[in-house]
Design a binder for these strands. Structure first.
Length: 431
RNA sequence: UCAGGUGUAGCUCAACCGGCAGAGCGGGUGGCUGUUAACCACUAGGUUGUAGGUUCGAGUCCUACCACCUGAGCCA
């Protein structure tokens, strides 16, 4: 048998015979000629099957092929202007691994519910394939960025004994004779790790039982969370800015083809420059008072507010110093203005909204203890967390970036559900 | 959870004022040596989301329920 190749590398075998293994993406036939679009995960190539070349029996068998049937085709790689991708495979022999029954997803239109019900198959489609490739690139860019800055990857637990933030709803689960909760953030554990390693990050799934039915929410999503000892809000923001620039650089370098397939306008991504506009809450609130009559000063921003703010700039906007009341208990208050928190939200451009939330953490034992009490959180569950302020407390900061929201923005999608292989939402846990 | 909307063939959708349930795609059969979501001919495919009600007659009107979609709150 001829040597194996992946479709993406087929150009190296021009004029030679190779064996390709994959699935039938589409096919059509015309008398003694049969065209099979072969898909192997790395690309798509058209195999041309002539009756006279492969023989009567093999040709007849090839006509049995259906969408997504699995095959092994050996043939000579040729260049052909008529073929998409420029290369074609002149089939010499075909081995059918399996004939698939009627495939539910046709190249025609489908509704979102049907596609989600068939998500396990939908992932084979070219647009979904492109989104997952961009997701992969973004995750790799994040890892490389933190590795270059000498961060240590520290994995946070998924089972937790109590609310990390205490504000949002948690998924509860049985844990032998007691209860446990699925994590909604690795942050508190990263704070412990930062005191051990200096600069750390975690990357893992997080869970929110919020009954949110919007295009921006999943109940299970992935978050990358750096945490740095001896770090203030300004330095924290610089790291966040650098991370976003790294992602843009990598995606524009390596995934142009995928973004083009997704019909993503690259111009808004290409014009992004540092430094990103930085704006304290009060300044943002003043803008919103003019633009949105429903906005109440002192409140957190709603989705329409974020859209208004992000559309005023071509680069992501960093909004800091929110009122302490709308933020979590661990946020450090600004010593200059104690009713404002040393926190930051990063809003992606083009109305995509919040992709990063973070800030400087409260590092004073007494202040933190009082906040835990004020928020009516179970004190004993935070004993270990308070220890971090007892044994060598230092200023520290970090943030969390939602991977799926970032992918939604980079890909220019209108809904978050296609950015994760198997989305979990309020109304979907299958497949 | 609230507010709107949708539910008809495997899929995407038609069906006028309440009057014979229809098309394209996909499937099957046959044809074609250059197709790209091919084309031509033939063909199979239905408990109109579920349960009630009004009516001579309901896909169509009414009630309840279910599922999904869009948006809001909350958040990354």
């Amino acid at each position: 048998m001829a040597p194996k190749s992946y479709i993406a590398q087929v150009g190296r075998f021009l004029g030679q015979e190779v064996t390709l293994e994959g699935w039938v993406y589409n096919h059509t036939h015309k008398g003694k000629l049969h065209f099979v679009m072969l898909r192997d995960g790395t690309g798509i190539i058209q195999a041309v099957i002539f009756r006279d070349t492969v023989g009567e029996a093999a040709f007849e068998k090839s006509l049995q092929l259906t969408l997504e049937s699995s095959v092994r085709i050996s043939g000579i790689v040729t260049e052909d202007k008529r073929a998409k991708g420029g290369f074609e495979l002149q089939a010499q022999a075909i081995e059918i691994l399996q004939i698939a029954p009627e495939y539910p997803i046709s190249p025609k239109e489908h509704g979102i519910d049907f596609l989600m019900e068939n998500r396990h198959l939908w992932l084979r489609s070219s647009l979904q394939h492109a989104i997952m490739k961009v997701r992969h690139e973004i995750i790799k860019a994040c890892r490389d960025y933190f590795d270059q800055l000498d961060f240590t990857l520290i994995d946070a637990p998924i089972f937790t004994p109590a609310a990390c933030e205490g504000t949002t709803t948690l998924f509860e689960t049985d844990y032998f004779d007691s209860k446990a909760y699925l994590t909604q953030s690795g942050q508190l554990y990263m704070e412990a790790a930062a005191m051990a390693f200096g600069k750390v990050y975690c990357f893992g799934p997080t869970f929110r039982a919020e009954k949110s039915k919007t295009r921006r929410h999943l109940t299970e999503f992935w978050m990358i969370e750096p945490e740095m000892a001896f770090c203030d809000l300004q330095q924290d923001m610089a790291v966040a800015e650098g991370l976003i620039m790294k992602i843009l650089e990598r995606v524009l370098e390596n995934r142009r083809e995928e973004l083009k397939k997704l019909e993503r306008d690259l111009a808004p991504l290409e014009v992004i420059r540092t430094p990103f506009p930085r704006m304290p809450y009060d300044e943002a609130a003043a803008i919103l008072k003019k633009e949105n009559p429903d906005f109440i000063e002192g409140d957190d921003f709603g989705a329409p507010d974020e859209t208004i703010l992000s559309q005023q700039h071509s680069s992501p906007v960093m909004i800091s110093h929110y009122p302490v009341g709308v933020k979590a208990f661990y946020m450090k208050a600004d010593p200059q203005q104690p009713d404002r928190a040393l926190c930051v939200d990063v809003l992606a451009p083009e109305g995509y909204g919040e992709i990063i939330g973070g800030g400087q953490r409260e590092d004073d034992l007494e202040v933190l203890l009082n906040k835990i009490r004020a928020h009516k959180l179970p004190e004993e569950a935070f004993a270990w967390y308070l220890d971090l302020r007892r044994f060598g407390s230092v200023p520290h900061a970090g943030f969390g970036m939602g991977i799926e929201r970032t992918v939604t923005w980079i890909c220019g999608l209108k809904h978050i559900r296609e950015t994760i292989p198997f989305p979990r939402t309020m109304s979907r846990i299958y497949p």
